[in-house]
């Protein structure tokens, strides 16, 4: 880990933004990913601005939805009565990630800023376009069983590791940020980027911007939902494929359906193709399977991760079927 200056901003987000701008560094909250990446010499900020004590640790009702402060611990968010009651998908997704200890440290904002678990990104001896733009990608011809199958580019096949973000994608969340140029909102689906030619640019955040909250809209509250995570251990492992889905059926037709996938792309993947096919359709197994297949049609797997295509299709269809049978 390189040496750095440390400053704590406890009073206000504006102070944090100002401190960061002075010091050209990174915001530090729970530290669960950033400290690890610094130890691995993947992140080498000259300064850290500790935002963990900012007054952003509240969950509040807002416009019929919820505002989750950026420094709310993941565990607190998952256990919060309003979250459990209205957005159980979010609670479940969070609880499927990491371990209890990590969830007690990790924050809302930090979870969004997690970086990939690609082996070659983590190994500074390997070539990685995300770590060192233009250096090449050793994953493409290397171990990529855990890698992306959707939205990949020749430059990067890494996945986004978050579970929470899969739920936030499905729930049409909005990210609130503040920065040197003031406050703005970013739709969750736009927050993370696909790799394209610039896999090192992972989010829409501009230099110095700070996440202050994530908003959940009223429109996605109280939907029957399931978060299904498939991984190599029964717990404490990143997703090979995860599905966060919500379904509402009215008069025998699908009135609302939201499907998001984890472990398959450089960003939490909103299955828009499948959703469009299913809107207004009958909630049948055949329709679910057809929609899932359509969603995965553009997949571009490698030799190790081809199984994810079929796995994602099966999981989408079975989660929707379960929702249709039991919860919808």
């Amino acid at each position: 880990m390189n040496s750095f200056s440390y400053a704590r901003a406890s009073e206000s987000p504006d102070l944090a933004v100002a401190l960061l701008n002075e010091n050209q560094g990174r915001y530090l909250a729970g530290g669960t990913n950033l400290i690890d990446l610094m130890r691995e010499e993947i992140e080498t900020p000259a300064a850290l601005v500790d935002i963990s004590r900012l007054p952003l640790a509240q969950i509040e009702e807002r416009e019929g939805g919820l505002r989750i402060g950026a420094t709310v611990k993941n565990s607190h968010c998952a256990a919060h009565p309003l979250v459990r009651d209205r957005y159980p998908l979010l609670s479940s997704a969070i609880l499927h990630g990491a371990s209890a200890q990590l969830r007690n440290m990790a924050t809302t904002g930090g979870n969004l800023m997690q970086r990939t678990r690609c082996y070659y990104f983590y190994d500074t001896a390997s070539r990685c376009n995300k770590r060192t733009p233009g250096s090449g990608c050793d994953a493409a011809q290397g171990f990529h069983r855990i890698h992306a199958i959707l939205g990949t580019s020749p430059h990067c096949i890494a996945t986004h590791p978050s579970d929470m973000c899969v739920a936030l994608t499905a729930l049409d969340a909005t990210v609130q940020v503040t920065g040197p140029d003031g406050e703005r909102s970013i739709a969750f689906g736009d927050f993370h980027r696909l790799p394209g030619n610039t896999p090192h640019v992972e989010t829409e955040l501009r230099a110095g911007e700070l996440i202050t909250a994530v908003d959940l809209p009223a429109s996605s509250a109280n939907l029957p939902s399931i978060y299904r995570k498939v991984r190599d251990r029964a717990s404490y492992a990143f997703a090979l494929v995860s599905v966060g889905a919500a379904l509402r059926v009215e008069d025998g037709r699908i009135a609302d359906v939201r499907i998001a996938l984890g472990g398959v792309a450089h960003k939490p993947w909103r299955a828009s193709i499948a959703e469009q096919m299913l809107h207004g359709a009958e909630p049948t197994e055949a329709n679910f399977r057809q929609a899932a297949e359509a969603e995965l049609t553009p997949a571009t797997p490698g030799h190790d991760n081809a199984f994810k295509v079929e796995l994602a299709q099966r999981m989408i269809a079975s989660v929707l079927q379960e929702l249709a049978e039991v919860k919808a």
């Binding site: 678990r117 070659y120 190994d123 390997s126 290397g142 251990r233 029964a234 404490y236 492992a237």
Partner: peptide, 16 residues
């Protein structure tokens, strides 16, 4: 080169 030199990526069994 070993590409999973960590307890996060080398999966020993967990309690569950």
């Amino acid at each position: 080169r070993i590409m999973n030199p960590s307890l996060a990526e080398y999966h020993v069994p967990v309690q569950a």
